[in-house]
Design a protein around this nucleic acid. Structure first.
Lengths: 137, 137
DNA sequence: CCTGTTAGTGTGTATATACACACCAAGATG
DNA sequence: CATCTTGGTGTGTATATACACACTAACAGG
């Protein structure tokens, strides 16, 4: 049972997340928030469901994850809310903070990629993506 | 940035965890708890630090993760506590519940392994283990 | 206009995670 | 014995995750 796929994936993910967090921490941005801001920076006016689909994240999880970013003014949520479609967009501050944190992200990414080499990492991530998609059907 | 290792790993891990959870749910055991109970079933009298080392889990995270299991009587924590070493052991109920949940775990494990094949999965997990170890130094 | 249906959204509750910090026990040193 | 250090533990606080559920807006059909 020590070969449990779920357990091993969670273990590696914890290690990688902690590593990214150590780099990003001083910029006040969490590893989970980086891709959220990245998506928002690429396109304005996401609905909650679009964004959660794009990120492959439970919609209700995303709602909670946006709260700290909204509170700190990195993004803005406009629209009706309960019942009506909302529109999530990055703010000027959000864009600036993301920009400032990018070098740290790049450093972490490069350091992790270096452990196995870019070729192997991309093969692994590609396979894992395929596995995850298979499980969703 | 959509190739962020951290983000992709977290995504896959969420999918796999949800899949395991769907199988284990009706037994009242979470995917995270299975390996904990497994370790406890293999050896009695773990100290908190030993167990967290073995599971590759932050010690303080483990403390919180043990609470529900302790509350539900699946394990017992004896010893001084704050300051003094503790001894964590599985209970009879814990052993029984784990036993009952094992078929569900096996089913989930097999289904996930089937997505890429056993050979590929074990190569991937072996590489990921190596990567995670490299990051801890 | 009214009502039923559906799609989009948020909440309640519970677990998972981890950094910073505080606490206490036990042995070492004086 | 007193104090000092160190190693093992738990807590405060904050984010991350997701299932079950409730709510509301918008639209359809009468």
């Amino acid at each position: 049972m020590e070969n449990c796929v779920c357990f091993n994936l969670r273990w590696v993910t914890r290690a990688v997340t902690q590593f990214f967090d150590a780099e990003l921490r001083r910029h006040g941005i969490r590893p989970t928030q980086t891709p959220i801001l990245g998506a928002l920076a690429a396109k304005p006016g996401w609905s909650m469901e679009e964004l959660s689909d794009w990120l492959g994240m439970e919609r209700t999880t995303l709602v909670r994850n946006l709260r700290p970013l909204e509170r700190d003014g990195l993004l803005e949520i406009t629209g009706a809310g309960r019942g009506g479609r909302v529109s999530v967009s990055i703010s000027a501050k959000g864009r600036k903070d993301l920009e400032k944190a990018m070098p740290a992200w790049r450093a972490a990414q490069q350091a992790v990629v270096k452990t196995l080499g870019e070729h192997r990492w991309s093969a692994i991530l590609s396979d894992l993506d395929r596995a995850a998609l298979a499980l969703n059907n």
